[in-house]
Write a protein that binds this DNA or RNA. Structure first.
Lengths: 296, 296
DNA sequence: GGGTATTCATACCTAATAGGTATCAATAGG
DNA sequence: CCTATTGATACCTATTAGGTATGAATACCC
């Protein structure tokens, strides 16, 4: 793949912002002809026209508008990465960076934080809700110290299981099954639309749901996908479908949703506190001590 | 700022993965000496040592591990951007991309989606929870069709106000003020630790809180920052502080938290459905019709 | 309607840089 | 202690980025 050069991204951003090759060239401290060639070369590499230009007017095409956002983001992310590794080399520290899935927020995270913060009020915690694959990548890249995530994820991570839970059915309050007490058999949901997260962001969770519905003899009809658990529940509450979710989601207490235990047997969903093998400093090791206590 | 070249990022990733200059050079189809110089030059530009090397062994330094993740991400994001703009140029479409703040999830979003999806079941909705500034950037970059966000945000966006709400105090159930009914005066919270989001992600919300506490004669002592509203509430429930939050957050119904109206008068917090000026297709225009109905 | 000014594109050239080869220096292993 | 291996350095060449001159198209002004 013939990807652009950073120089070309900078050139394009300058032209896109000035909408004038001459002024953009001046801003870049080059002359206009190499800028013109650079943009042409960029467009050839991308296979897209980014700028519509005549002798008197330059405008962004839709593709150009789209690519402009990407180019700006890439350039600013590179600058941040440079600053970040520079300050790391210069010696900074003394904080813990913790990613977590929204499920953790309904379960162990508040208790974990409370325990640790009581013991170590001086350690700054940077909390960030992230999907499990993103946390795994960030751990591998040393951008997080810990992640609270759902297995399986890629990478050489150590982990502590901090939560194991069963699934429940999340039903709109108006649902016929919501009126009854007691457990729900999964086969009773065969005709329903489901609200689910895509498999690639939580394969462990998704596969338990898939296994449950397969054993009940059907494949779930997905009415709406959503990525975060609270969004799943929100969509259930407005009647867009039902969902099979881990039981801690019931802590969400969302109006318009009722939760029923599932009659069918199934494995529990594990939640991990994960960290990069060999990647913990002193603050991290102490955090782990507290985490082991909370996990019992 | 002397940022690296993409060529240097590729060189570094290759060495980091092979931990051998000769094999990395072979993989890159260059010879070993220019690779050695390239890495040295990269380290000079970054002001950090990325690789610890002797004649027989190459290892990543902590800074190198950190930067490796960034470099890989940047390179893969660039490739995705190239593919994305290439396929856009080749012609794709037919869906709506909607970003939203977590607040919207507690308020208008479910109703909005339900109304639209009933009318137009064939249009695929891609939902993504994002902070307001990120949504604004994504709208400007044509990466979202709509955003449900809190003003003010940067950029030339059109908007429809879809929600206006007052603030409430979120208190741990064990709090002394939680036992009483009736409204809470903000000055009664002067000695409390607050859980707040940083200003830069929601300046409109933050400034109303700042105004409330300033009028009550104090500056809030921030015990813990959190970015998303459900995380704020989660931390309140575990006793890490109190919070002043928009009233729709009470829909969260989180155990361990009670909500009390605030006695002090204050402006309402607006929630916008925003879109890029001139950036709507037919599906988007129709979505807007439904949105106007829901907003009344 | 014609002339002029402006602006992006092209042709040709030079300066700067990326990569190659030869070799050095250090060290691990036999 | 000698040899093989590997990253670093010196010197050189090939390639590319940028500069200057100019062309071509067009909008504006007279």
């Amino acid at each position: 793949m013939n990807t652009p050069e950073l120089r070309q991204l900078r050139h394009f951003v300058a032209v896109a912002e000035h909408l004038h090759f001459g002024r953009a060239a001046a801003a870049l401290h080059i002359s206009q002809p190499p800028l013109s060639r650079s943009i042409q070369n960029l467009e050839q590499r991308l296979g897209a026209t980014l700028l519509a230009r005549s002798r008197r007017k330059v405008e962004l095409t839709p593709e150009g508008a789209r690519f402009l956002g990407e180019a700006k983001r890439l350039l600013s992310q590179l600058e941040r990465a440079v600053l970040d590794v520079g300050s790391m080399a210069a010696g900074a520290g003394g904080r813990l960076r913790l990613g977590f899935v929204s499920l953790a927020d309904f379960g162990v995270l508040p208790g974990l934080l409370k325990a640790y913060k009581a013991a170590r009020p001086g350690v700054a915690l940077a909390l960030r809700e992230m999907l499990s694959p993103e946390q795994a990548a960030a751990l591998a890249a040393s951008e997080l110290d810990f992640g609270l995530l759902l297995p399986p994820v890629a990478g050489d991570l150590e982990h502590l299981v901090v939560q194991r839970e069963r699934f429940v059915a999340a039903l709109p309050s108006s649902h016929r099954l919501a009126r009854t007490r007691g457990r729900v058999a999964v086969r009773e949901l065969a005709a329903e639309a489901f609200v689910m997260a895509p498999r690639e962001i939580a394969p462990g969770l998704h596969d338990i749901v898939a296994m449950l519905t397969a054993r009940a003899g059907f494949s779930p009809r997905v009415g709406q996908e959503a990525i975060q658990m609270q969004t799943v529940v929100s969509l259930v509450s407005s009647g867009l479908g039902v969902a099979l979710v881990p039981s801690s989601v019931a802590n969400l207490g969302r109006r318009g949703v009722v939760y029923r235990e599932i009659a069918d047997s199934h494995p529990r969903l594990d939640l991990w506190l994960a960290w990069r093998r060999g990647g913990l400093g002193a603050a991290g090791k102490e955090f782990l001590v507290h985490a082991r206590r909370v996990a019992r």
